[in-house]
Each structure stands twice: as structure tokens, then as C-alpha cells.
């Protein structure tokens, strides 16, 4: 079985990750490209992540309210929605949106550069294309996904506040106190920590698929598509692992 395509691909991807760790933290550092990629991955994903988080926060609140009213637990809506958004929905929605937008973009861009010999041209120009293209994108995704997640959490909570006030009146102070008063460090830390891994996985898979694209334009499409599919799947797997690890360490 080690010779099966799955294990061959897995080994190649681990080798790619190993190369990132070897080359990523040695000079020459591509600071300008890192900043550029942070802008592309972070700032340009903001509207998409913001809109989806807003809708999810609002829908979740409106859907939850009738049930909570039945049980006479209306006052628990903020903390329930808040915990759901901060611990699960925020990271997952952000990860999936970034995987769809950025993962496909990285896969297609690097794939296109590979098949049109731009990566070779970069190497001939005295640039290490792995550092310039791959390291900068993986680092940017790793740094930006947690920031986007925090912003998504804030937008989702804002939408929750709006949802509550559509059918009642709750002050901002009471709403914030209701959520923050019940949140513990152990609930927030794993939720934030796992988003670094989400970002790393999105950057790594997108870069791996694009950097190793073959078979011309068909290969570019395959790279973009498989980058999205695989990184989306990886986000759910990492989330499952994160739940297991945080439970094992008592962060729940």
C-alpha cells in the first residue's frame, strides 16, 4: 500500500512541508512579497468572510430563538451563539471561505506560472522561487487566517446582537457581559490556535498543488480544483483533531 497514489502524494506533500520548514526560516527573506501576500490573502478576503459571518450569526440567532423561548432560556441565546461562533462557526466558516477564495487562487496562479515557465524564469533570474512564491504565501495564509477569524467572530457576534434586537431589546453592555462573562480562556485559546493550522494547511496545499502542476492548462484547472477540495477537507480533519486535543488537555 505505501506505493499507492495516496501515499505517494502524501509523502510528496510532507516533503514539500519539510522543504518549507527548511527554507522558510533562512535568509534571504522575501519581506515585501510576504506583506503583499498578507494584503491579498487578508485584506481582500475581508468582505467575503465578513458577509458570510454576518449571515451565519444572524441566521443562527433567528433559528435558535424559538427553541430557546420554548425552554424559557432566551437569556442564554447570546452565550450559546457566542460560544458556537467563537469555538466552531467562526474558524470553520473563515477557513472554508479562505480555502475557496485563496486556495484556488494560489493553486491556479502557481500552476499557471509553472506551465508557462515563469517559475523557471524566476530561478534563472537568481530568485529562489520556492522562497519567493511558496514560503511567502504559506506564511501569509498562516498569519492572516487567525486575524480574519477574530474579525469574523466579531462580525458574527454583531449579527447575533442585531438578531436578538429584531425581536426584543437587549443593551450592548448586557449582551457583551452575557457572552464575555461566561467565556473562559480555555474556550478561546484552542479556537484561535487551530486557525493557524487552518491557514498553514490552506497555504501549503494551494502552493503544493500549483507548484507541482503539470499537463498544461488542464493541470492548472486540476491544481485549483484539488487545492480547494483538499484544503476544505483538511480544515474539517484539523478541526476534529483540535477538538480531540483540546478535550484531552481539558480546554473545553
Amino acid at each position: 500500500m505505501p506505493g499507492s497514489p495516496f501515499f505517494v502524494e502524501l509523502r510528496a506533500m510532507l516533503g514539500f512541508a519539510g522543504r518549507f520548514l527548511r527554507e522558510g526560516f533562512r535568509p534571504r527573506y522575501e519581506w515585501l512579497e510576504l506583506v503583499n501576500q498578507c494584503y491579498i490573502i487578508g485584506y481582500r478576503s475581508l468582505p467575503l468572510v465578513g458577509i458570510t459571518s454576518f449571515i451565519m450569526g444572524l441566521v443562527l440567532t433567528l433559528r435558535l430563538r424559538p427553541t430557546m423561548v420554548q425552554f424559557g432560556a432566551t437569556s442564554w441565546i447570546p452565550v450559546m451563539v457566542g460560544l458556537t461562533i467563537i469555538q466552531e462557526l467562526g474558524p470553520i466558516i473563515t477557513g472554508l471561505m479562505v480555502a475557496g477564495k485563496v486556495g484556488s487562487s494560489i493553486g491556479a496562479e502557481l500552476g499557471s506560472m509553472r506551465v508557462s515557465e515563469q517559475i523557471d524564469a524566476m530561478e534563472v533570474s537568481g530568485t529562489n522561487p520556492f522562497k519567493y512564491l511558496v514560503v511567502s504565501r504559506i506564511l501569509a495564509a498562516t498569519l492572516m487566517v487567525p486575524i480574519l477569524t477574530l474579525l469574523a467572530d466579531a462580525v458574527g457576534l454583531g449579527a447575533c446582537y442585531l438578531g436578538i434586537n429584531l425581536q426584543g431589546v437587549t443593551s450592548v453592555a448586557l449582551f457583551a457581559n452575557n457572552i464575555l462573562g461566561r467565556l473562559t480562556f480555555g474556550q478561546v485559546l484552542p479556537a484561535v490556535a487551530k486557525t493557524f493550522f487552518f491557514g498553514f494547511a490552506i497555504g501549503l496545499i494551494g502552493c503544493y498543488k500549483g507548484y507541482n502542476a503539470a499537463k498544461g492548462t488542464e493541470g492548472v484547472g486540476v491544481a485549483a480544483n484539488s487545492a480547494v477540495v483538499l484544503s476544505s477537507l483538511m480544515i474539517f480533519l484539523l478541526d476534529l483533531v483540535a477538538v480531540g486535543v483540546s478535550t484531552a488537555f481539558g480546554f473545553i
Partner: peptide, 30 residues
Amino acid sequence: RAKVGFLFQSNALYDSMTVRENLLFPLRRH
């Protein structure tokens, strides 16, 4: 490689960069 120019069959110009940036790229590397 700074002393050896290579004209690729596909030209291999960087799509996301202007002509000026394409020419500046090797210049800034060397």
C-alpha cells in the same frame, strides 16, 4: 546566471507585473 540571459520559448513574462516590473525583477535580484 546574472551573466547568462535566457529567452524562454513561452517568453515567461510575469503576468501579474507590468513591463517595468518584469524588467526590474532580475535587476533587483542581481
